[in-house]
Design a protein around this nucleic acid. Structure first.
Length: 1055
RNA sequence: GCGCUUGUAGCUCAGCCGGUUAGAGCGUCCGCCUGAUAAGCGGGAGGUCGGUGGUUCGAGUCCACUCAAGCGCACCA
């Protein structure tokens, strides 16, 4: 016997399922049992173990889980290795905040060892939070995974870097980079991109005096770079103009004279830009002598345009990117009067020690006093700030950094990406493709502490450099390299081997080489943590130092999924590194397909942020609404690549739309199965079952096929929507229409067929739901499958996904039932319009339709649903409807072309009924168009539309009309009253909370027509309401009263 | 500034190769039904398919331009 189904408490049930899964080791078994099957490789994009998981994290994990569960149930071996991104700026900044460390000095004062240990500890804390969330949402993932700080992981990354170094792909160079002074580090393009904000900056035009008394005008928005000015650049082929001006004539591009000076400017003469090239000018400031090269000279440069400014560009090679490049090409000197901490150098006179942005005003004031400030305004533009500290502006700063020459292999990376399957597909050429095509060399060094150390050692006397790819390689050079580390470890058990490859310990590692003077010491930098993440395909296994076979088995990934911000992050890093490192491998690698998720926003479409407090903490919501509700809400609403507005109300909706509906169907099934003591056995062949049974099985079959194909197209949301509409059909049509079959008394083959069908549907539904709502699916499975079939796996997640079945498939039946449901909807709408309750039986409904064969087998369904005595398909449609003949544009368009509108008009003007007659008899019609030419139209080339004639209670749609006979006879009215009575008695039974099969007796008082109706229909009423005696009499005790069709009905129910 | 994506009912979204009465769910109002239901059903209201122009017999769908939003790229001085 099935267990009674209680009222649902989804969160509580989920806790029980979690305990069950853990206790039985279901996840491990699901992986284990498929060990010998084809492998489906998944890479976990390592989340940064920094900060609590938010809705985006929840969504990403659900998005991963649903595909992995599906593939697993489809018979693939789907190992799921967890991973954590544990290095880098985010972690350091978090620790700095916690410990109140302001900057570089504070950290160094505290000591790198303590700092690194704090970072490690912080990371461990957040990993715990993430694991709790992952478990709660039912995301199945191995606990035993990789972390980027592991020694084996770091050594793999070293191997990659070392390989690049040897191939000349890793190089050091001065380059203008975005520098974060307070953070003492460069930032990657990605990090910089996060911090742009519109600000108002000064916009000044400055005079640079030439030796002949005139001056060149140059525009800049960064006055703080002016003391470091070394040159001016002009466009040699453009025309420049000398303009008369008090205080000395000025020179600028002719095209910009009006914009800079005004329409009334008086041009003294014009000259070519090339004439200016080579002239020297008077420096604005001479705080420090420029080193190694030319200075204070006018250069010609191709990058100078006349779009804005003056056509004369102020050049400070120590800062801007173009400035540095051109400076280098043209042999300019180098002058950097801003220190790495962002403050003006000590030798800057009055400006010494000012923070660079603070120097703007004093510099402008000074220039003004000296008559060198030509014009001053404010300029609103976007400027980058630190993504970690939004008030701290970044500085464009020429700095020696390490780069990976990704630009050298740009084409290979782009073409590797071409073969990746992206969902949605536009990402390939759009977002991702653009990013890769615009790629510049990857600045990977960071002047920080907690990260993978750059494995380059430099001879402190000769500057020779060596790279190493592992600890073993270091030991070959110096067997005692880690002596100090091991000595410390002896006394300190908490010092794990993972730390030996980190700062500060690794900085103690040195070696010498025979025949070479000097000592090899490690360069100070660590690397961008995105390089760690991007190395994960091989570094997770410690490849190539170990696990070569596991790497080969798991490369490339079949599937990954992350949110769209990974374009510049993880995806980019993986594509770059893999393409450079494994040039010989077949593309795509390291991943074959990727589902791109949008962001989860609040209901207003704003990004969720802690600051705005515009979201509910996920863990709280999961306990409130249930993980399944949250999963379903995310899966059914989120379209790949698009943002989704989400909050708790979405989870509430999914509880109603899916969870409760499924639960209620289960509850119905079990209720009647228990009453009848029905057990699954000898299920009848499908072709012997009732139409409704065959129909719901056909729908199930179609749903299964649809879900599979949606998953195969990487469209989880389409799959979810298919399931949703199946559950609707099951609950709202199959069950509603089948109820009577279940509560019919006695045993019948039909009842058995109904039970068997519903049971089979529920069994498959549990499997169908398993990837989406694993908890509900399990609950269902345990109740309907495991309860009887002890040979079934202990968990739905060990069972195969359903497959379409030829026995069930029946497209014709599905279409017919669709038509029937439509007819019923029309009929009910007629009733609504004429205020005829469905409880009031009517004599007849007449259907007018084209394809009677499609509907004929189901007239009984329509009869019951519309509560009419008879359903008839009209033989004489003309009696009820008018015909309208319209062209079938799709068919006629190509044939008639420009004459199409004439045809439409001619058909509209003609008598529709006459045309219909002709069509019925001859199978075609001929009509004359306004150009005088007749046109012959076949049946396929036109469409017949029906409209109910005036005066009938009818509704129409397309080629279908439903007519109701609204006339009531006394007999019909009496039956209507009887049904009202049944309704009230049933209500009373429910009120009294009676068992479904409890027998009752009723005494009632009624008069007139109602009494007559009760007398006539007594036996029927009694049968429907399980009433043993139904008799008139004095109603005493707790009487109930009801208004039945205007008559008072008093009655008393007794057991 | 440039690029990608999106714009369809109050909200969330469908809409296949262009085919002429643009759909669904939620919400709302009205009505109905209910021995599974914390449910369900029917109907009404609600749309210049962001705008303009074009191609076409025919455009929500194709093209051009344009507006708005999200994201990405980027401070050329």
């Amino acid at each position: 016997m099935f267990d009674a189904v209680p009222s649902p408490d989804f969160p509580a049930q989920e806790r029980a399922q979690l305990a069950f899964w853990t206790g039985e080791g279901i996840f491990d078994r699901s992986v284990e049992q498929s060990k010998d099957r084809p492998r489906y490789v998944f890479f976990e994009g390592p989340p940064t173990a920094n900060g609590l998981p938010h809705w985006g994290s929840v969504f990403t994990r659900v998005g991963k889980d649903v595909f992995l569960r599906y593939k697993s149930m489809c018979g693939y071996y789907v190992p799921r290795r967890t991973g954590w991104d544990t290095h880098g700026l985010p972690v350091e900044v978090e620790v700095q905040k916690e410990l109140g460390l302001k900057g570089k000095e504070d950290i160094e004062k505290m000591g790198l060892e303590a700092f690194s240990r704090h970072c490690l500890e912080s990371v461990g804390r957040y990993i715990g939070e993430w694991e709790r969330m992952s478990e709660r949402i039912g995301f199945w993932l191995d606990r035993d995974g990789y972390a980027t700080y592991h020694r084996s992981f770091v050594e793999s990354v070293w191997w990659a870097l070392s390989t690049f170094f040897e191939q000349g792909l890793l190089y050091q160079d001065y380059k203008s980079v975005w520098w974060w002074p307070q953070g003492n580090t460069t930032l990657s393009a990605g990090e910089v991109g996060e911090g742009y904000r519109a600000v108002d900056d000064p916009s000044v035009v400055v005079r640079f005096r030439l030796d002949d008394g005139t001056a060149l005008l140059a525009w800049t928005t960064t006055p703080w770079t002016l003391p470091s000015n070394l040159a001016l650049a002009v466009a040699p082929q453009e025309t420049y103009a000398e303009v008369r001006h008090e205080g000395g004539n000025v020179i600028l591009a002719e095209a910009l004279v009006a914009a800079v000076i005004g329409d009334d400017a008086e041009i003294v003469r014009t000259l070519a830009g090339s004439e200016l090239v080579g002239r020297s000018y008077e420096p604005l400031y001479t705080f420090r002598e420029p080193e190694n090269g030319k200075s204070y000279e006018v250069l010609g440069a191709a990058f100078v345009t006349l779009d804005s400014g003056t056509g004369v560009v102020h050049m400070a090679p120590a800062f801007g990117e173009d400035d540095y490049r051109v400076g280098k090409e043209q042999g300019l000197a180098f002058l950097q009067l801003v220190e790495p901490n962002g403050h003006m150098s000590e030798d800057c006179g009055a400006f010494a020690g000012l923070f660079f942005k603070e120097a703007d005003k004093p510099i402008m004031r000074d220039l003004k006093e000296r008559g060198l400030l030509f014009k001053q305004a404010t300029y609103r533009h976007d400027y980058p700030f630190s993504p970690r500290a939004p008030d701290e502006p970044l500085l464009q700063y020429a700095r020696r950094s390490w780069f990976i020459r990704t630009s050298a292999k740009k084409d290979s990376v782009v073409s590797n990406n071409q073969s990746v399957t992206w969902q949605p597909s536009h990402i390939r050429e759009g977002r991702m493709g653009d990013f890769l095509r615009n790629n510049v060399d990857w600045a990977i060094s960071r002047e920080r502490w907690w990260g993978t150390p750059l494995p380059i050692w430099k001879n402190d006397e000769t500057d020779a450099m060596e790279s190493v790819g592992s600890v073993a390689e270091i030991l070959q050079r110096n067997p005692d390299a880690f002596a100090k580390f091991y000595a410390q470890q002896k006394n300190d058990a908490t010092l794990s081997d993972d730390l030996m490859v980190h700062r500060p310990w690794i900085d103690d590692v040195t070696w010498t080489k025979d025949g070479e003077p000097g000592v090899y010491r490690r360069v100070p930098e660590v690397i961008d943590c995105w390089f760690d993440a991007g190395s994960m395909p091989f570094a997770q296994w410690g490849y190539p130092h170990q696990n070569k076979d596991r790497f080969e088995e798991n490369f490339p990934a079949d599937f990954i999924t992350e949110a769209i911000d990974q374009t510049r992050g993880w995806w980019n890093a993986m594509l770059q590194i893999s393409t450079l490192l494994f040039p010989e491998r077949a593309t795509p690698h390291p991943f074959k397909s990727c589902v791109v998720l949008g962001f989860i926003t609040d209901k207003e479409g704003r990004k969720q942020s802690k600051r705005l407090k515009n979201y509910e903490p996920p863990m709280e919501a999961l306990d409130k609404y249930s993980a399944d509700a949250v999963r379903w809400a995310l899966l059914v609403n989120c379209v790949p690549g698009l943002n989704t507005k989400f909050d708790g109300s979405s989870a509430k909706e999914s509880t109603r739309d899916l969870l409760l509906k499924v639960w209620n169907v289960l509850s119905f099934f079990v209720t009647y199965a228990r009453i009848d003591k029905w057990e699954p056995h000898d299920s009848p062949p499908v072709f012997e079952r009732a139409t409704l049974d065959r129909w719901i099985l056909a729908e199930l079959d179609d749903t299964i096929a649809g879900v599979c194909s949606a998953f195969d197209d990487l469209e989880a949301y389409t799959a979810a929507r298919r399931v949703q509409s199946f559950v609707d059909a099951l609950s709202n049509w199959y069950l509603r229409r089948s109820r009577a079959r279940f509560w019919a008394s006695g045993d019948s083959t039909d009842k058995h067929a109904a039970f068997s069908t519903l049971h089979e549907v529920l069994c498959d539904l549990s499997r169908l739901l398993a990837p989406f709502t694993p908890f509900l699916a399990e609950e269902l499975f345990q109740r309907v499958v495991r309860r009887h079939d002890t040979t079934a796996p202990v968990s739905v997640h060990l069972d195969p996904f359903p497959t379409p079945s030829a026995d069930w498939s029946d497209p014709w039946l599905r279409q017919s039932m669709g038509t029937v449901r439509n007819l019923v909807a029309l009929g009910l709408s007629v009733r609504a319009h004429h205020q005829l309750k469905v409880r009031q039986p009517l004599a007849e409904t007449i259907l007018v339709l084209h394809d009677r064969a499609q509907v004929e087998p189901y007239l009984e369904v329509i009869r019951e649903e519309l509560n009419v005595k008879e359903v008839r398909i009209s033989d004489d449609p003309a009696q009820f409807v008018e015909f309208e003949i319209v062209p079938n544009f799709r068919a006629l368009g190509p044939k008639l072309g420009k004459r199409m509108p004439q045809c439409k008009q001619a058909l509209a003007n003609a008598n529709g009924s006459a045309l219909y007659q002709a069509l019925e008899t001859k199978g075609e019609i001929t009509i004359e168009l306004s150009d005088g030419q007749p046109v012959m139209l076949s049946k396929d080339e036109i469409e017949v539309r029906l409209k109910a004639r005036e005066g009938y209670a009818a509704a129409s749609e397309g080629d279908t009309v439903v007519v109701l006979d609204t006339r009531l006879t006394p007999e019909l009215e009496a039956e209507g009253l009887a049904r009202e009575v049944i309704h009230h008695i049933q209500g009373a039974r429910k009120d009294l909370d009676l068992e479904y099969d409890a027998r009752i007796t009723i005494v009632y008082e009624a008069s007139d027509a109602l009494a007559a109706a009760l007398a006539t229909h007594g036996p029927w009423i009694a049968g429907e309401t399980l009433t043993t005696t139904l008799e008139p009499g004095e109603v005493e005790g707790d009487a109930r009263e009801a208004d039945v069709g205007g008559h008072l009905f008093r009655f008393r129910v007794a057991l």
